[in-house]
């Protein structure tokens, strides 16, 4: 069972103008992924682009796993053109995972945009017990709403332009949710993935209310396995310790899921 294996594309379906759902079948035995972990996928056979691309696990399937991705650069554009039966090199599952909520904790899951890809398998894992707050730019950028509704304890949706549900950001929703429910719900623990500014807001809100928050970060990566030290994020409180190398943590190894309070935003 290796974390470096070949996979075959079963399907690579367009979900809207710039999002795709990629279904991969592992051709060798693979390790079971945990919610929040990620994969490095080969997107080109040549030297340009050179590096593999990092994608969150979307969900485990009976034949392999799915990736939900947004086309945003050369690598993802090439991936979007890959046909069924194409074979590619895969490295993973990699990195840390969302720590499962313990008994008595109430999971509140926050997804901004494509961040839904990272938390989806967590929602599956805690099926029925999590409050889900999902925000996107517009109606077209919301995915898997029926599935999510069926799995969430309560489901809140917002769009920046008001084209679906409430107009506003996922942060507005979280603010409202916390002010309303903090007293009634026991031991809220937040799980969040989305754009960096959203996660920063989540972190400061959680800090102000004394709530634990787990956030999944994104960085450009070269190796994905902790060797190149290219994807680091600054963490708090190590500045004077002389323990130089701990001022930064690797998103690919210690992350991508971090305790929000640990990050120097």
């Amino acid at each position: 069972m290796s974390r470096y294996f070949r996979a075959r594309i079963k399907s690579n379906l367009p979900l809207n103008r710039n999002h795709r759902l990629l279904s991969l079948v592992n051709m060798e035995r693979m390790k079971d992924p945990l919610p929040g972990q990620f994969y490095m996928l080969e997107v080109s056979k040549g030297n340009d682009p050179l590096l593999k691309r990092a994608f969150s696990l979307f969900r485990r399937t009976s034949e392999g796993f799915d990736i939900l991705y947004r086309i945003q650069g050369k690598g993802t554009a090439l991936l979007s053109e890959m046909k069924e039966k194409t074979e590619l090199d895969v490295l993973g599952p990699l990195g840390s995972s969302y720590p499962a909520p313990v008994a008595g904790e109430t999971p509140v899951i926050v997804a901004g945009g494509i961040g839904i890809a990272s938390v989806y398998s967590l929602i599956e894992q805690v099926r029925g017990s999590a409050y889900l707050l999902y925000g996107a730019r517009e109606k077209d950028d919301l995915f898997m709403l029926d599935e999510l509704k069926a799995m969430a304890r309560e489901f809140f949706i917002s769009t920046d332009d008001g084209s679906h549900s409430v107009r506003g950001s996922v942060i507005d929703m979280l603010k409202g949710f916390l002010s309303e429910r903090t007293s009634s719900e026991q031991n809220i623990v937040i799980y969040a993935c989305g754009p960096r500014p959203v996660l920063k807001e989540v972190a400061s809100m959680a800090d102000a209310k004394g709530i634990r928050a787990h956030v999944s970060l994104e960085e450009h990566m070269a190796c994905g396995i902790g060797a190149c030290l290219g994807c680091v994020v600054k963490v708090k409180g190590q500045e004077q310790a002389g323990e130089g190398s701990s001022l930064y943590k690797r998103v690919c190894k210690e992350g991508p899921v971090f305790d929000a309070g640990e990050i120097e935003w």
Binding site: N47, L51, A222, V232, S245, L247, Y248
Partner: peptide, 20 residues
């Protein structure tokens, strides 16, 4: 002595290469 290294971003891909 240990070294903390540079502030991110630390890598960027370039045509057929990368800068670190």
């Amino acid at each position: 002595l240990p070294k903390v290294g540079n502030p991110p971003p630390r890598i960027i891909e370039t045509p057929a290469g990368m800068l670190n």
